[in-house]
């Protein structure tokens, strides 16, 4: 584990300005390469034009413009990419940056050197944080040293969240299917399904590529995040910024338009809220192409840690401007 900055127990006002989410100059793209490691190809003329802009032109764009440009790339890269891809070696990511920013290449090399050998990509559809987290969360239960304990703790936490959702004003009817879907996946880690099989990593991957299952889990996590923010307004109200305008939203508006709505990216507030309510430790590695004075190519790790669960590793996500994937010490899918 590399050096990490302090962990944050409160919504980190001092941290938010450093969040590099809008800094995308020099960034080749954050779309996924296909499984063979070929760089992603973009076909429209507009794309080609934008990519050929020298960095100075990108620098002249306002943060909102760069953000929108990034969003456009992400949404255009959506259709034929899996919701969650199998583990791939970091080298596949490196290839994509070799013709672009050397800062990114150095940071990728830094991650590799510190043992982060693989990346599991998620589709850039605005749900990538929730989907990455959900997958990595269930996988961490699957890989826990004491699976039964991990499943029991997870389900205990989740059961208690149902009343939280009801207190937030959500009808049980409106969320129970999503809840059942999420909880059933976790139960299958120790309870055989109808075919007598326990959940394996490859089955988890398969489930997460079925939109119905995958999106149900994403919806539940969004509602959970929203319910937690609604239940603890004092902690969150000063940080509910509209990502487009930078202005403060009221609680209701923020929860409806930035949390509950599918396709809306998560920012620090959502990550903090979800890590707390789900009692899961999340570490985010920032692959942001920013020069680091102390150490060349160093990657900052932000920890959103709330729980001390023996035998469970934190979920580690890889952030690139506008997108989350899962970071892994393995570089390929485990053999089963």
């Amino acid at each position: 584990m590399p050096d990490t900055p302090e962990s944050y127990d409160v919504p980190p006002i001092s941290v938010s300005p450093e969040a590099p989410k809008l800094k995308i100059s020099d960034l080749p793209d954050v779309g996924e390469a296909d499984v063979n490691g070929r760089p992603p190809s973009y076909t429209t003329a507009e794309d080609a034009e934008l990519f050929s802009l020298p960095p100075s032109d990108l620098d002249s764009l306002t943060p909102l413009q760069t953000y929108e440009m990034n969003e456009n790339f992400l949404s255009e890269s959506v259709p034929d990419r899996p919701l969650i891809a199998p583990l791939a070696p970091m080298a596949t990511l490196r290839t994509e940056y070799e013709g672009g920013s050397q800062l990114f290449v150095k940071q990728i090399d830094w991650l590799t050197k510190y043992g982060y050998a693989g990346i599991r990509r998620t589709r850039g559809d605005g749900d990538c944080f929730y989907r990455s987290l959900a997958f990595a969360y269930i996988e961490s239960i699957l890989l826990a040293s004491d699976k039964a304990l991990a499943v029991t703790s997870a389900i205990s936490v989740l059961e208690s969240t149902q009343s939280l959702l009801e207190q937030a004003g959500f009808d049980r009817m409106a969320f129970e299917d999503f809840y059942d879907c999420f909880v059933n996946l976790i139960k299958r880690v120790i309870t055989p399904d109808n075919a007598g099989q326990l959940l394996s990593s490859s089955m988890l991957l398969e489930e997460f590529n079925m939109p119905e299952v995958s999106n149900s889990v994403v919806v539940y996590l969004r509602l959970l995040t929203s319910a937690h923010i609604r239940a603890d307004p004092d902690s969150y109200i000063p940080f509910l910024l509209d990502p487009d305008t930078g202005e403060l939203n009221d609680l209701q508006q923020f929860c409806i338009s930035q949390v509950e709505a599918m396709g809306k990216e998560a920012d620090h507030v959502q990550i903090i809220a979800l890590s707390r309510v789900l009692k899961v430790n999340i570490t985010v590695a920032y692959l942001d192409g920013r020069p680091h004075n102390s150490q060349e190519g160093k990657v900052d790790f932000l920890e959103f840690h709330n729980a001390d669960i023996p035998g469970m590793n934190p979920v580690i996500l890889l952030y690139r401007p506008g997108h989350y994937d899962i970071l892994d010490k393995r570089n390929e899918e485990p053999l089963e």
Partner: peptide, 12 residues
Amino acid sequence: ESASERWSPVQS
């Protein structure tokens, strides 16, 4: 107006 009520899976 952005504050108006929107669709989400918890509507019915």
